[in-house]
Design a protein around this nucleic acid. Structure first.
Lengths: 208, 208
DNA sequence: ATTACTTTGTGAATTACTTCACAAGCATCC
DNA sequence: GGATGCTTGTGAAGTAATTCACAAAGTAAT
């Protein structure tokens, strides 16, 4: 299958969230045009995005909501259960350990790690903070799919290296640094400073 | 000046963060090639990004680190102080109210709002939660530049409408929904579910 | 002052992404 | 069952973003 752009995947996520809302309202079908309006895009874009994976619509009618919803979940690999570990038990890590949204979407948080002696043994919900040195050994047993990295800038490169060595193929990065990984590992970075700077840029360059 | 792509702005942010690190290490100059390596891009990309705003380098030498750093801060509109209000005093809103990173970068958090009677009057750091109904009146006095929206999905559209009516031109959206605003308002959305789904997609479609 | 070497800045070429536009399919009505 | 109306799926066209490739400008060494 040919390469799918990240922007496409983001839109698929978005469509799915709309479909779930619409499904709850009990509507049975939806057109590419309505989906486009919800997502701030064009109907052609919606159809092209979906057509990369198959033809799910009926001409003249649109898309059956539960059907398309199911297909998108399938495409996005939801439905599978992914095993997640959190690395870094600071403020963000702790907040994530308490976050309900993971389990709701089939992401099972299995462990939380830190380097800091003082934090090891602390409990967050049902998880006890473990030393990062155990990561690789644990991974051999537990087969983590995703590492959520929430460490300070300095320790991040080393932590990422360990995660990669442990065979983890997807990283959600909250550390305020760029991370480098082999090409078979996927990274998504969430960086407050970068988002704020983007807004600052937009504000500074309005109307010229 | 011509339209700058969001991807370009993201890279500028990234370059700036590298330069700040390099400045601390005391290095005086850097080449587009080194910046590219740090940022996981190409030297041509770096040069093109910068050339959109001027010519900051010296042929044969590279870029003077403090100089380029200063220019990027200028381009990104840092240095100005931006006035920020947080809307939504739930978990995320509360965490953001305590977050030090805003002030460090010149973003002054001035107020936090909520609809919920029970939350109004609560204190986070130096801020007291105010009723959202006061937003517009406050904005007339305080001239907010940025609203950070951290509300549940249902209440978000109404809240965003109020923020727009209050004259706010930039929104950082943590609510798990798409928000629609007039074209002179800039929005950046941070959505955990969407990031996780992106990783799930990548994991599901490896090696084909 | 000439030569050798480095690295920028930028048009041109390429690649990626989006939008257009329309034939084909399906439902409904008369 | 033919005509009408609607909406998909998709090549082709159009934009946008990235990479190539090289002249121009600088440094350093002799």
């Amino acid at each position: 299958m040919k390469r799918i752009a990240e922007s496409t995947v983001r839109r698929l996520s978005l469509y799915l969230s709309f479909l779930e809302g619409i499904e709850r309202q009990g509507l049975k079908t939806i057109s590419s045009d309505e989906l486009a309006r919800l997502g701030g895009t064009t109907s052609a874009q919606v159809r092209k995005d979906l057509s990369l994976f198959g033809s799910f619509g009926k001409r003249g009618l649109g898309y059956a909501v539960p059907e398309l919803s199911k297909q998108l979940r399938e495409i996005l690999g939801l439905g599978k259960q992914w095993r997640v570990c959190i690395i870094g038990a600071g403020k963000i890590g702790a907040a994530l350990a308490r976050y309900r949204g993971f389990a709701e979407r089939g992401f099972i948080v299995t462990a939380i790690y830190d380097i800091d002696e003082a934090k090891i043994g602390k409990r967050f919900e049902s998880l006890t903070v473990r030393p990062i040195s155990e990561l690789e050994k644990d991974a051999a047993k537990h087969e983590y799919d995703i590492a959520v990295v929430a460490t300070p800038a300095e320790s991040t490169p080393a932590v990422v290296k360990q995660a990669v060595r442990a065979g983890i193929k997807a990283i959600l990065n909250f550390a305020p640094v760029q991370i480098s990984v082999p090409s078979d590992v996927t990274v998504r970075t969430v960086n407050m400073a970068m988002e704020l700077e983007g807004l600052s840029f937009a504000l500074s360059n309005r109307a010229d």
